[in-house]
């Protein structure tokens, strides 16, 4: 499977993250999104007419929506990332996949504006982003009342992976996460998953490693 990738893209990271958590190896092809705008080139549009990233290619299958890529990866390998098999659970996962698009259009755009100088109404991006964060916070708070930490059911699903990047990267767009205790603990739970990988703007939980032992001084190496 080949992923056309950009290291700073929250949507590309969704796919890299799920693949890493599942232990699936992706072939990554870096696309010069910024400053090269290579995703708008004729050569790239021959692969994805929409001229967007990421793109996942597996044989004849070409996918251009990150949430579809999450579904494909999860379907292909054991389905534990799809939640339990009940209709309600499957629908809830879909609900959060759609919600993640709202995160991208608000917090994601605020980040692109503040970081890579994208045009747009920054105040509107932030305001709608905060609305999304409040919905998420209220949902996660109720989940915690019931003894759960993830978005759907008792274990992490693609719903968490779809929503996590643009939420964790909200400060890049000038939106603080200090007001959302349940989101903070959910974000920690995602970052503590085995085989978790970070992206720029999302720091590793260094506390998961013990305090390191002393090593010989640099001069002796």
């Amino acid at each position: 499977m080949k992923l056309y990738d950009y290291v700073l893209s929250a949507s590309c990271y969704k796919v890299r993250l799920l693949a890493a958590l599942m232990g699936v190896k992706l072939e990554l092809e870096a696309v010069d999104f910024h400053p090269g705008q290579a995703h708008k080139s004729a050569a790239f549009r021959a692969i994805n007419p929409a001229g967007t990233l990421p793109v996942l290619v597996d044989g004849d299958l070409v996918l251009s929506e990150s949430t579809a890529m999450l579904v494909y990866l999860a379907q292909a390998s054991g389905k534990i990332w799809l939640g339990d098999a009940t209709p309600a659970s499957a629908a809830k996962v879909q609900n959060w996949l759609a919600f993640s698009a709202r995160l991208g259009a608000s917090l994601g755009m605020a980040r692109l504006h503040d970081m890579l100088l994208y045009p747009g109404d920054i105040e509107a991006f932030r305001r709608t982003g905060v609305e999304c964060l409040r919905e998420l916070e209220s949902h996660l708070t109720e989940a915690r009342f019931a003894g759960r930490i993830f978005l759907v059911g008792d274990s992490p699903t693609i719903a968490d992976i779809a929503c996590f990047p643009n939420v964790a990267l909200a400060p890049d767009g000038g939106v603080s996460l200090d007001d959302y205790p349940s989101i903070r603990l959910w974000s920690r739970a995602v970052r503590a998953l085995p085989r978790f990988i970070e992206m720029p703007g999302i720091h590793r939980l260094h506390e998961l490693k013990p305090t390191p032992e002393a090593v010989p001084p640099l001069e002796s190496l």
Binding site: Y6, V7, L8, A30, V31, D32, H34, P35, G36, A38, M115, P171, D172, M199, P200, G201, H203
Partner: peptide, 22 residues
């Protein structure tokens, strides 16, 4: 090394610094 990989390596490093600087 392809151009896009060189650029993205550098962007990755600098964007890791950005959340510190802010």
């Amino acid at each position: 090394t392809p151009q896009a990989d060189l650029i993205q390596f550098q962007q990755m490093i600098f964007l890791q610094d950005r959340s510190i600087l802010e």
